[in-house]
Design a protein around this nucleic acid. Structure first.
Lengths: 199, 199
DNA sequence: CGTCTATTTGAATGTACTCAAAAGCGGTGG
DNA sequence: CCACCGCTTTTGAGTACATTCAAATAGACG
């Protein structure tokens, strides 16, 4: 049931079988259909989700109705509205499934229990947070210093599997351009990824 | 000597006096003059720095020679090149002092020792990483969805003390515009922060 | 199949950048 | 105390990258 998640965890910390049992007792499973929401802006995000199949995304909608993607979460990734989850605030993000997906859920209270009974989990989530932090720092600097095309190329390099499965529109909302512009960029520009009409 | 840092820490975790002694034995102090580097791009960033006075910044320099600020670190903030510090990689950031400053340094090996002997520190740095993560997520979404002026206004709201002390150029490099554009924005636009030539 | 959504294409527009030069500001040394 | 130097800020004119709005086309799901 929870193999993928347990494997992810044991890459960072070791658990006894009692600890594993306690941990899994705090989990639940949820299936999501395409476009089904996990949470919406304004709601309190009580769960952190680990994706075991499919792909979710978190995003905001700005005052003009445009979506901006914060994160894609394919298999083996965690996703949540951190600010809401950590500090019990109304969320600012929408999280939904891009494809039919399955996630493992844990509540804030479950994580707190883990911290008290299995301090190793402090380490696990510290490491995750640190890695995520580095990732967002890099992405921010990319947004400040690179052109749209360079950001697109970086995305292709870093997430080769996503680029093949995601709708272009979603990629545009991630790298920070309009879908129209991304389309033009790809069909105008020379030498790009995977499309040189070899007769 | 280390009061500010200890106070920061005890806001999150409690330490015995022996633990405090062990901790402080791992620290060192460094004074930095205006523009003095803590680390430069390409170097291995062995230290994490906690600012006790003054203000540091971390930034990159792009291929056109433009600086982009990742972080300002005034008093009571940590600053480091996380990717380099955590994973022992050559750094990608420059870190220097904007004003004359004083920092407390701890080495990666010191932190590892802390994790082994005082597991509470796992929690401390987990909390810091999580908060920083949320901050960078917000900033990223701001960069994707807001105009330059809105980003500037947010900056003024979030860091009112920085806006008064930092050179405009540094703020421009943080919000992601050229210094020229920021200048025009401030002198053209109506209703802005703290400058309405009341006769 | 039909409907809904994603992608493409075009023309006009705008926000922010580039390059250049002048003006302001602060510190330092004669 | 003034003069000079380096750096920041301002200002202007021209430019570019990316957006907006609109409409046509293509694709995907039920």
């Amino acid at each position: 049931m929870f193999e993928i998640l347990l494997k992810n965890i044991t890459r960072r910390i070791q658990l006894t079988s009692e600890e594993t049992a306690l941990f899994t007792s705090l989990l639940s499973v949820k299936k999501l259909k395409r476009r089904q929401f996990l949470v919406q802006e304004g709601e309190f995000n009580k769960y952190s989700a680990f994706v075991t199949s499919g792909c979710l995304r978190s995003y905001t909608v700005d005052k003009n109705g445009f979506e901006h993607v914060l994160q894609f979460a394919p298999q083996d990734w965690w996703i949540t509205d951190m600010a809401s989850f950590l500090h019990n605030l109304p969320g600012t993000l929408f999280i939904d499934a891009i494809f039919e997906s399955e996630v493992v859920l844990i509540q804030r209270s479950g994580i707190e229990k883990l911290y008290q009974t299995i301090p190793q989990f402090e380490r696990y989530f510290r490491i995750l947070a640190e890695n995520a932090l580095v990732t967002y720092q890099r992405r921010l600097m990319d947004n400040l210093s690179l052109t749209a095309r360079e950001r697109y190329d970086h995305f292709c390099t870093r997430y080769p599997s996503l680029i093949e499965t995601l709708p272009q529109k979603q990629v545009a909302a991630y790298i920070g351009v309009t879908p129209e512009f991304l389309s033009k960029m790809l069909n105008t520009g020379t030498g790009r990824k995977g499309q040189t009409e070899t007769s």
